[in-house]
Computed example of a mutant assay.
Amino acid sequence: MYKQQFVIIGLGVFGETIATELTRMGHDVLGIDTDEVKVDRLAERITHAVIGDVTDESVLDELNVGDYDVGVVAIGRNIEAAILATMQLRDRGVKKVWAKALTNQHHRILKRLGATRVIGPEFEMGAHVAQELHYPMVNNYIGLGEEEFIVELIVSDNLDGCQMDALIEKADAEVELVLLKQGKTTSTNPSSDVTLHKGNQVVLVGQLDELRKFADHL
C-alpha cells in the first residue's frame, strides 16, 4: 500500500477518529478545525493539526490542500461550511472528496457539488456493525473508494501457528499484508510467510471481494 496524503476538515469525534486511524496506518494527515482545543488535542497524534476557518478561501490556499490525494469534510452541524469546504476542495483539484451529510437534502447538494462519496454516519456505523457480526474476526475497517478496503483482523485460536502466505494461498485471494502487531511490536510491510499467533493484529488491503474470499476461509 502506498502512502497517501489526507486533509481532514472538522476534528470532532468523527473527524478525529478518521485522522488518527489514517495516521496510525502510516499516511500523512492534515487536520483543520476552528476549535483550538480540538486542534491541540490532536497536535501530537497526527502529522499536522492547524487552526483554520475553511470558509476563508485563503486558508486552504496557504495550506496547499490541492496537493493532497484525498479530502474528508467531517464538519459537524454547520451545513454551509461543509458545502463551502467541499466546493473548495474540488475547485483546488483534490481528486477524491468524501463529505459527511447531516440530512437527505445535504446529501443531494454534496453529490451535485462533486463529492466522490457522501457519508451518512448512522448508515456507515450500521454497515460496520453488520460487517463485524458477519465476520467476527474483523476488528476494524475503512473504505478507500472503488471497492478497496483496509481491514484489521484479530488472529483467533484456530489460526494460531498458521503462516499468512499459506492462508492467502488456501483462499486464493489477492490481498496484501501491510501491518502486523505482535504484542508491543508493530511491523509494517512484514514478510507474507510470517507465522501468526493468537491475539496478533493483522492489517490487510485489497478489493472487497478478495477480502471476503480470504475471510471466508479463516
Rank of each mutant, 00 (worst) to 15 (best):
R77I: 15
E169W: 03
A166F: 15
V72G: 10
L133E: 11
R77T: 15
Q207T: 04
E21N: 10
G52D: 07
Q131M: 12
R92L: 02
D61G: 13
D33C: 11
L204T: 00
K100L: 14
Q163C: 01
D157K: 14
L153Y: 10
G71V: 11
Y135N: 00
R41H: 13
D172S: 09
M25W: 14
L153Q: 01
M87W: 15
D193I: 12
V202D: 00
E176S: 04
R24M: 08
A166G: 11
Q88K: 07
V151C: 02
I83C: 11
N189I: 14
H48A: 05
D40W: 09
K3D: 04
L60R: 04
L63T: 03
G76Q: 09
R45S: 10
G52M: 12
V39Y: 00
G31L: 14
N140I: 11
D53Q: 04
V155A: 02
T23L: 14
D33H: 02
A85Y: 09
L144A: 02
M25L: 14
D53H: 13
L63G: 05
G52H: 13
L167T: 02
N158W: 15
D33E: 01
E147S: 13
A81E: 01
L179G: 00
V70K: 01
I79T: 08
R117Q: 08
L208P: 01
R45Q: 12
Q4G: 12
I150N: 07
G93K: 05
E176D: 07
D56A: 15
V175Q: 03
D33N: 09
Q105T: 10
E174P: 12
T86H: 01
V155F: 05
I9G: 00
E152F: 06
I142E: 06
S191I: 01
E210S: 10
R45C: 14
F123S: 08
I109D: 02
Y141C: 03
T116C: 03
T186E: 06
G31Y: 03
K100R: 08
G12A: 07
V203L: 11
K213V: 07
I46N: 03
E57P: 04
G183L: 00
K170R: 14
G12T: 13
I18A: 04
K38G: 05
D172I: 06
G12E: 09
T186I: 12
R90V: 04
E80N: 03
Q88N: 05
T20W: 06
I154E: 09
E210M: 11
V203F: 14
Y2C: 08
L196C: 08
G52Y: 10
R77N: 14
D61W: 06
Q131L: 02
L42T: 03
N139G: 13
D28H: 05
G114V: 08
D193E: 06
G206L: 01
T23Y: 14
A215M: 06
V7S: 00
K95R: 05
I32W: 08
E132I: 11
A43Q: 03
P121H: 12
H217P: 12
A215L: 10
Y141N: 03
V7A: 08
T17I: 12
